[in-house]
Design a protein around this nucleic acid. Structure first.
Length: 425
DNA sequence: TCTGGGGTCCTTCGGCAA
DNA sequence: TCTGTTGCCGAAGGACCC
């Protein structure tokens, strides 16, 4: 057999790019007068700045007086902080903290609502800048991407630093935002590297840097080691990645199982051959909501029914907008004590129909203990497939009648309409 | 007055068929 | 016919991430 005469493969150079304090930075572009002040962006149910915007209609956003912004102490209701500026963090306020607790720590912090539409606009812009320079990019969320530098002209120069600098500058010129970039032989190390020189920094990791740069770090810095695994490792006396690397692979497999144990060992040795994936299909689409107060299936039947219907309609709208239908329909409940339960059912045929989803999700709900109050209700559709002409979209508002579906109730083949019961299930 | 929303992937378990 | 094994699949939950 003829040997291929392709040129020697270049060493893999993978970059991880992370926007610096993305949400807060976008807000500061809008409201530059808040620079340097404690600002938290929170999961406010209602836009915390609605009144503000109305009161100053006609005035450029950047000229709204700081004194007019809503303060944390004025907020009532549930919710957590999505992100906080460094000035707010100085008060001990941080991501995932309850708004009420944060209000005690820093009552005068300015509270802004999360504006995902705006963040997505900026997200699209910076990603477009990147793909114009380096086309092999993997989307990892609104503020993060992996980029394969390997075959990009200049991608190997100074270990990737030259290209990283070009991308940083191009993003800043296009958006006014800064980012941090780590470049390494693989995604695992690149992700860790991007944290080394935040904000607005570039860090290069070469294979030979493993012992000096990676091994001293705590195990929690490995992307994929969360609080539970870190605690289990700590209980075994393993705190750093270097200590993890010193373990016998077989012993880790004994402790954590074949897959997880082997993965931990490989991660500690900086091994990761996952490719940069430029396209992916969603696996599921869901909607969920936390209520203002805990609700009871019987005593709050009407309110819950309306919320449930709305969630099903939203999921159906999302499915149609994104061009999918799904076979697995499920519900999620969070009880007042924060226990989470799920129930799901797989249908014979995929659907994107709001009424159908509601009917099947209602049956799932019936399988749960509804005598206790709960705080959250969610609806999920999984096992997605592209929406074709044969799938019944029917998204939008649930009407008074629903079409019988060929996938369930096959005995119901005769055309008839079925009134949606006004009750929850 | 703790604790959001939207995802992915993995493990475990039970039912079922070969 | 009964029992054990294996493999697959769906359901439920855990862990993790942004």
């Amino acid at each position: 057999m003829l040997q291929g005469v392709s040129p020697p493969a270049l060493p893999r150079r993978i970059a991880h790019l992370d926007m610096d304090a993305f949400y807060a930075s976008v807000e500061l572009l809008r409201y530059p007068q808040l620079k340097g002040l404690p600002v938290v962006i929170g999961g406010a149910r209602r836009r915390a700045d609605d009144a503000l915007l109305q009161a100053h209609a006609g005035l450029p956003l950047s000229e709204i007086p700081v004194a007019a912004f809503p303060r944390l102490k004025e907020y009532t209701g549930r919710g957590v902080i999505t992100t906080a500026t460094y000035a707010a963090r100085a008060f001990g306020v941080g991501s995932a903290m309850g708004l009420m607790k944060a209000a005690r720590l820093c009552p005068d912090a300015i509270l802004l609502p999360v504006d995902f539409d705006e963040y997505r606009r900026y997200s699209r812009r910076f990603k477009q800048v990147i793909t114009e320079i380096a086309p092999v990019m993997e989307d990892r969320g609104v503020d993060e991407v992996y980029i394969d530098f390997t075959d990009v002209p200049g991608g190997q120069r100074e270990g990737g630093r030259v290209l990283a600098r070009l991308i940083q500058k191009s993003i800043f010129d296009a958006t006014g935002l800064t980012c941090s970039i780590g470049v390494a032989p693989n995604k695992l190390l690149a992700k860790m590297a991007s944290e080394f020189r935040k904000p607005n920094g570039i860090a290069i990791v070469q294979p030979e840097d493993l012992q000096t740069l990676i091994w001293p770090l705590p195990c929690r810095k490995i992307n994929g080691v969360g609080p539970k695994t870190a605690a289990r490792l700590a209980a075994l006396g393993i705190e750093t990645i270097g200590q993890l690397a010193a373990c016998e692979r077989a012993w880790l497999v004994e402790q954590f199982g074949a897959s997880h144990g082997a993965w931990l060992f490989d991660a500690a040795w900086g091994r990761d051959d996952r490719p940069v994936v430029t396209e992916s299909e969603p696996v599921s689409i869901s909607r969920e909501t936390t209520f203002e107060r805990d609700l009871h299936a019987v005593r709050d039947r009407e309110a819950l029914g309306a919320i449930f219907t709305r969630l099903c309609e939203q999921v159906a709208e999302d499915l149609v907008r994104k061009g999918y239908a799904g076979r697995t329909i499920g519900v999620k409940l969070r009880y007042a004590d924060f226990r989470r339960v799920t129930r799901e059912t797989t249908l014979e045929h995929a659907t994107a129909d709001a009424a159908h989803i509601r009917r099947v999700a209602g049956l799932c709900l019936k399988r749960l203990d509804l005598t206790q109050r709960f705080r959250l209700l969610g609806v999920r559709v999984g096992s997605l497939q592209p929406l074709t002409a044969t799938s019944a979209p029917g998204a939008g508002r649930i009407s008074e009648t629903i079409r019988p579906d060929p996938g369930v109730n096959r005995s119901d083949a005769a055309p008839k309409t079925e009134a949606i019961t006004p009750s929850l299930f």
